[in-house]
Design a protein around this nucleic acid. Structure first.
Lengths: 141, 141
DNA sequence: AAAATTTAAATTGCACACAATTTAATTTAC
DNA sequence: GTAAATTAAATTGTGTGCAATTTAAATTTT
C-alpha cells in the first residue's frame, strides 16, 4: 500500500468530509445570516449565556486571533454583547443579545436536516461518533 | 438529549478533529516549508505528474479560487510548474519541478508520525476509516 | 460560419485559522 | 512595594476556502 497516496490518507478524508458537511450547513445558516463558526459560538452561548473569550476559545478550540474579529462581526449584527469584566480588566465577557437569543428557535430544526441527508446504518454512525469522541478526547488541553 | 448542545454535534467534532490533526502535521510540514493543502497538492502530483487545475480541484475538492493562488505560491517556491495546455488554451496544467519531486523522499516518513500519536485500537481505527470512506463516497460529484 | 452557450481559470471580496507580536492588566517574586 | 513574570485580548500578517463575477477559449446551435 502506498502510504503517500491521497486515497489512503485518513487526515485528508477528515479534512474533506468536514468541509463538505460544513457546506451542507451553509445554505441553512445563510437564512439566519450566520457562518458555521458563528453558529458554533451561539451553540455555546445558548448553553451558557455569559462566557469569557478564553473559555469560548477553549470550547471551540479557537484563539483570540480568530475569535476577536468573529465576535466583533457578531456584535455588529446585534447577536451578542462584548464587555470587559469589571473584576479583571483583561477579560472580555461575551453574552447573548435579543437577536442571538431569538435565533435559537429558528436553529432548533437544523440538526434534523442532516439525519436525512446521510445514508448510513444507525449503528455504524453511532460507532463512528463514539470513535470520533474518543479521538477528540485525546486532544491535549 | 439536547440536540443544540455543542458536545452532541457530530459536525463540530469532525471540524475540530480535522483542524487538530492538521495542526499535528504543521510542525513536520514546516520543515519542508509546506502548508497542509500544499502537501495535498504534492501527494496528487507524486501519483500523477501532470494534471489540470480542474482535475486537481476534483481530487482535493477545491475550486480555482482556492487553487490558483495556492499553486502560484508553490510555483514561486519552484515546487511545481504551471502551463497553459496547447490543445485547449483554457486549461492550465500543473506538473512537478525538481523541488517538488525531491520533497517526496523527505515526506515518506510523515505518515508514520501519526500511527504513534494516536492511541486507539487498530480494529476500531480501521472501522472508523471505513465509515469515513463510506461517508466520503456519498459526497456528490 | 456567426451567435449563443458552455467551460476553465482567474479575479474579487469576505470570513475564517493560526503563528507571532503587542498591549494592558494582574500575579508572583524578591 | 516594586520589578519580573504571567495572563487575556487584540493586532498583524499570511494562507486558505468559497461565493460570485469576469475573462478568454472552445463548443454547440441555429
Amino acid at each position: 500500500m502506498d502510504k503517500l497516496s491521497l486515497k489512503n490518507q485518513l487526515c485528508f478524508k477528515l479534512y474533506a468530509l468536514s468541509r463538505h458537511i460544513t457546506s451542507l450547513y451553509r445554505p441553512i445558516l445563510e437564512e439566519l445570516d450566520l457562518t458555521y463558526p458563528q453558529y458554533l459560538v451561539l451553540l455555546v452561548l445558548w448553553e451558557k449565556n455569559r462566557i469569557s473569550v478564553k473559555e469560548l476559545g477553549h470550547h471551540l478550540m479557537l484563539d483570540s486571533g480568530t475569535l476577536t474579529p468573529l465576535l466583533k462581526r457578531m456584535e455588529s449584527k446585534d447577536l451578542i454583547h462584548r464587555q470587559r469584566s469589571m473584576l479583571d480588566e483583561r477579560v472580555v465577557e461575551v453574552s447573548l443579545k435579543e437577536g442571538g437569543t431569538a435565533l435559537k428557535q429558528k436553529a432548533l430544526c437544523i440538526p434534523e436536516h442532516f439525519t436525512q441527508s446521510v445514508t448510513i446504518d444507525a449503528q455504524e454512525l453511532k460507532q463512528f461518533a463514539a470513535t470520533l469522541s474518543r479521538l477528540m478526547d485525546q486532544i491535549p488541553e
